[in-house]
Write a protein that binds this DNA or RNA. Sequence first.
DNA 1: CGATTACGGTTACAAATGATACGATATCGG
DNA 2: CCGATATCGTATCATTTGTAACCGTAATCG
Lengths: 148, 148
Amino acid sequence: METLRLDDFLPFRLSYTSNLVSGAIATAYQRLFGLSIPEWRLVAVIAECDGTTQAAICARTGMDKVTVSRAAIALGKRGLIARQPSASDRRAFELGLTDAGLALYAEVAPKALELERQIFGGLGAGEATRFLATLRRIDMILGGPAAD
Amino acid sequence: METLRLDDFLPFRLSYTSNLVSGAIATAYQRLFGLSIPEWRLVAVIAECDGTTQAAICARTGMDKVTVSRAAIALGKRGLIARQPSASDRRAFELGLTDAGLALYAEVAPKALELERQIFGGLGAGEATRFLATLRRIDMILGGPAAD
DNA sequence: CGATTACGGTTACAAATGATACGATATCGG
DNA sequence: CCGATATCGTATCATTTGTAACCGTAATCG
């Protein structure tokens, strides 16, 4: 019989490493830009897709809608994003980066890529690519047909 | 210039998938055994290594010491683990599974392996192995020389 | 030894996170 | 149209999670 060793138990290992990475990222963003991880994610999504709504961000990132709401309010207060009432749906806001937000993004994005390179650059040639592909497969197994 | 896409950004992807897996595991354990993830981890570690202390569990699993303390107290109250004052260090407890704890573990461990198989069994032949190896490499990059 | 410092574990407190309920609008069925 | 139901975002509340202070004990150093 196959015995259980926590060190080799994939769900544990995955959580462990994810916490390590998230912690490193979180402290870096907090220190450099005063952004929490949810806030940084909002900025990134809005930069990629101007005019999205909070609900769309939830669907895309898996974040809770209240987490997104709080991050949006915080970013709005800091003048980094603008929240325009949607014309087609008066319940929703269309989110966009302000000039300040764009300026911040211009700083944050390269830093993000650099952090990624610092952490994952040490992996072998195809290793990072395979790793990402495996993560996506796991998403599909768990999330059903979703996963982008 | 290499552009940033959140969907391909490894720190995000890793966190996303980890949350998915942890969520699935957490609900299963809660429903089947009334165990939180920290509690389940304690049971697993103690089963593997009878007589460990809480500090050792922290070092091994990366959990916060107060999380471990709470889980230990809860498991003690449920009669699943025994906490014997250590002979060599009167501050520490040596943790061991009671008969009830052993019985629970005999149920939990196979279920854990089954869950792991359900989630990761769909991966290709060497894929899970490579995935685990990559996780360990990331741990080493971030955690310095540690990582077991 | 005696004092200082470090460590194991708990407690008390603060921050973050998620579940629930709500107001407002939108959509659907009759 | 109008009522029932679903959705967007927010606010409230409970739970979880981490941080800082604490009590004992151990180890270190003069």
